[in-house]
Simulated assay, not measured.
Amino acid sequence: MNVRGRDGEQRLGAAELGDDLGERATLVQFSSAFCAPCRATRRVLAEVAGMVPGVTHVEIDAEDQLDLVRELGILKTPTVLVLDTEGRIVRRATGQPRKADVIAALGEAVATS
């Protein structure tokens, strides 16, 4: 698996995500089954995606996608990646995010597109 584009930047698309990219940005959450902060993160990201038109939230079970986890260097769950419209990773964070931080990261993703 290679998630690097021709320009050398890490990019994710529908093949890696199992879902289409959002029209404006995509919130990708890597979770694991027994991760309590993952459930809270899911709620925050789903709420933000519901508030901001063109933003999609995709949750990936880290245990089911070990090759992708290794390729991206995901070391703990939850890890959240913010992708722009081209699937470029514009922001990365571990742990449970605050809604305000997610909204700020989306602003960065939309600005780069």
Rank of each mutant, 00 (worst) to 15 (best):
A40C: 02
D20S: 15
E71T: 10
G73V: 06
L68E: 14
R6Y: 10
A25W: 05
G5V: 12
T56W: 08
R6E: 15
A33R: 13
A109E: 01
Q29E: 14
V48A: 05
L81S: 05
A109C: 11
T79I: 07
R92A: 09
D7R: 09
L66R: 13
T85I: 14
R24G: 10
E23K: 09
D7N: 15
L83S: 11
G13N: 02
L45T: 07
E86C: 04
F34V: 10
E71R: 13
P97K: 13
L45V: 13
E71G: 04
R6N: 15
V110N: 10
G5Y: 03
A14E: 14
L68Y: 05
I89N: 09
R24F: 03
H57G: 09
V90M: 06
A109Q: 07
S32C: 06
P53H: 07
A25Y: 04
E47N: 11
R98L: 14
K99D: 05
I60S: 09
M51E: 14
V28M: 11
G22Q: 04
Q96M: 13
V69K: 02
G54C: 08
A46C: 07
D64C: 05
L45H: 06
E59L: 00
Q96F: 11
F34C: 11
L81K: 04
S31F: 05
S31P: 01
A46P: 08
A49N: 00
S113H: 04
R4E: 11
D61I: 01
T77H: 06
D64N: 12
A25I: 01
S32T: 09
A46R: 15
A93L: 14
G50W: 07
H57M: 07
E86T: 12
R91I: 00
G8H: 08
V52Q: 03
D7Y: 10
E71S: 12
T41W: 09
Q10W: 08
P97T: 11
A36N: 15
L12R: 02
K76D: 06
G54I: 07
T56G: 03
L72D: 06
T94F: 03
Q65P: 02
E63H: 11
M51W: 02
R6I: 10
V48Y: 04
L68I: 10
G13M: 04
E63F: 05
K99W: 00
Q29R: 12
G50F: 02
G13V: 03
R39S: 09
R91T: 13
D101Q: 13
K99F: 01
G8L: 07
G95T: 00
D20I: 02
Q10N: 15
T112N: 03
D84A: 05
A105N: 11
A36C: 07
Q29G: 05
V28F: 03
D64R: 14
R91S: 15
L81W: 09
